[in-house]
Write a protein that binds this DNA or RNA. Structure first.
Lengths: 137, 137
DNA sequence: TTACAAATCGTAATCATTACGATAATATGA
DNA sequence: TCATATTATCGTAATGATTACGATTTGTAA
């Protein structure tokens, strides 16, 4: 998902595309990886002095709810990134810079058979480490 | 790992096997699944009125550090369970009762080749849903 | 342009977790 | 067994991320 698609989705769902909301989208588009609420706050404060926590967290939740952002938990903090809705896949996540790389493998096909009498609602497969850039830095 | 093995490990590493520590092990052995610090606190308060947060969290960290407990993050709270050190595997985790079922599949072999210029430090594969007992309850 | 719903502000509250000085308990060697 | 050093625990306050809310401002559609 890119910024324009996200703005269209927002409007389509009856939400307003405010300046702050557009900037939040810009931030995540540029980030190209996982970022925390604190990261976003730091960025937003450059453009909007005294921006409220309420605004940060309300919009993060909104974007997550409508599918613009996806979330995961790293070191006890929620991290967000632009949602890739095109097809189901998982991520390698760099512990240094938060950038991600798509992983083609999804093991769920094998798992579903082995858990026939369980109700599967969700799953998480993530690989952590250092990306080539951070590895040599 | 069971309680006795855990106590041996503690002593071997120079830690004292106090009554509270033994009770914490008993709690996790009985639990047979993931539990939070709050769950443990509730249990411990029955036996030790006014037990300190310090004791709860210090021992959870200690047990995690020496490998008696393993941890994961569910709904923004750290959860702990007895560590299964026998062999590498992953878990189905019941969202209701926290109990786990071993999953034989590990997709990392396929992944390692696809990420040859990345440094892989860790990975997480978890499946969430309802176990047969909670499903019918 | 007006009106109204939605968004934001400013700030306090909450919740899990961490920290720390003072006190108590445990293991071990005499 | 007893003394003692070391570790564990207590009691409580602090921290840090997140949530909450009444008052105010802003965007959007008519």
């Amino acid at each position: 998902m890119n910024r324009d698609e996200a703005i269209d989705l927002l409007k389509q769902k009856g939400y307003k595309a405010t300046g702050k909301r557009k900037d939040i989208l810009w931030f995540f588009e540029e980030a190209d990886g996982y970022r925390t609420a604190k990261d976003l706050t730091r960025f937003m404060e450059n453009n909007y002095e005294g921006i409220s926590y309420d605004t940060i967290y309300r919009n993060l939740h909104l974007y997550h709810d409508v599918g613009i952002l996806e979330a995961t938990e790293l070191n006890g903090e929620k991290h967000f990134r632009m949602n890739c809705t095109k097809h189901h896949h998982h991520h390698f996540i760099c512990k240094d810079c938060g950038k991600t790389k798509e992983i083609a493998v999804c093991p769920m096909d094998d798992v579903i058979n082995a858990l026939s009498n369980y109700t599967i609602e969700d799953h998480k497969f993530e690989v952590y480490g250092l990306c080539p850039a951070c590895k040599t830095a």
